[in-house]
Amino acid sequence: MQVFLADTIDINDQALRIANWRNLRAAAINFIASTPTLPLPGRGNTLDRWRALSAIGGQDLALVKVLEAHFDAQAILADLDAAAMATGELWAVWAAEPPGVVLDFTATTETSGLLSGTKAWCSGAQIASHALLTATAGGRQVLCRAVVDLEYMDYDTSRWQAVGMSRISSGTLMLRGARASLVGPPGAYLDRPGFWHGGAGIAACWFGATTAIAGRLREDRRVKSNPHVAAHLGAIDIALSAVAALFRETAALIDAQPRQAHRHEIVRLRALMDRVASDVIERVGRALGAGPLCTEHDHAQRCADLMVFLRQAHAESDEQRLGEALFDGETRTWRL
């Protein structure tokens, strides 16, 4: 008996990773060259911004993760009246602060200094030219801008074993006196309303990928011959229509009241999108079986990528906050 073995690809192969990083960076730079900016949140065209992110997310989740961070950095700089990025640059935003992981900023002048310590969950450090990073100075959080200079930084991706989002590692960055400058006063990164507005942009990326996954079911002929398949598609239509309406409502609210954070509304939107996306992945799989996940690379990769990307949501923790806010009377809802 002759056995034909499929070619195997080790996701830990460094040569493959480097090729993926180069391709991803080239795609991001090409997109930015053709679309240097997106509408800023809270300036009247928030929905257009989210539609653009959704469209990219429907094509490539790794690419939209890179681009969403770049355009988020653009919005942050605008919010804090900081100098804009230059043409040809690719920016990242690294603001995760897990317990026990500390990055210190030591001032050398009134507005500049050195960064030393560790920064976790630095997505795309191998392809970004610049970054906004949160750090600690005098016991307070500060936001810094820095050139990604690997002479003063070590990037460790050895723990990144994800199959989903494998093309964009989120590793740990160790900084050794990297030069940086302050952006805004201490605490400004979290205090600005745009912090929450930007969080909804992530959900727009999820929406685009979710509709692409749902589209695989929508075009399948079994919808006409199998009532269970049709029922799954109908349930998906209900869920996606509901979350799309909430996107439109939330965007209008942000544009009408841009100086408000709208935290409750945005947490609710993200939580709903998380549940809808998870449900769509499950329903498409139940309707079509293992076939598309095993034989259609783009669909299988999109499902795997989205399952990882969705975990930027805070799941039941967000739902807990929503419930507590309602009980305490902090917000009013459920009105037509």
Rank of each mutant, 00 (worst) to 15 (best):
I238L: 14
R275K: 12
E110H: 05
T295Q: 12
R248D: 15
D7K: 11
L38A: 02
A137L: 08
I202A: 06
L233M: 13
A86C: 08
L272Q: 14
H314E: 12
L53F: 05
V223N: 08
D220P: 03
V142P: 00
R259W: 11
A290L: 14
P36H: 04
G177M: 04
I29T: 14
S166I: 03
S54V: 00
A287D: 06
A239R: 13
T211M: 08
L115V: 03
G139S: 04
M85A: 12
A75V: 02
A52G: 09
G234Q: 10
V66N: 00
R270L: 06
G187T: 02
P185H: 06
L115G: 06
I254H: 07
D60R: 01
T108G: 04
A325V: 01
Q301Y: 10
A188R: 03
I168D: 04
A230C: 07
L336A: 15
C144V: 08
A188K: 04
N20M: 11
D220G: 04
S158F: 04
A251C: 14
P99M: 07
D318N: 08
A239S: 12
F195T: 05
F4V: 12
S225G: 04
F207K: 05
L53I: 09
G208L: 00
D81F: 08
R49V: 02
W206Y: 01
L38R: 04
E151S: 15
G113V: 03
L253N: 08
D7E: 15
L5D: 13
R321F: 12
A231H: 11
A252R: 11
G291V: 14
A315S: 12
R22T: 11
E316G: 06
L269W: 05
H297L: 15
I56Y: 03
R263C: 09
R192H: 14
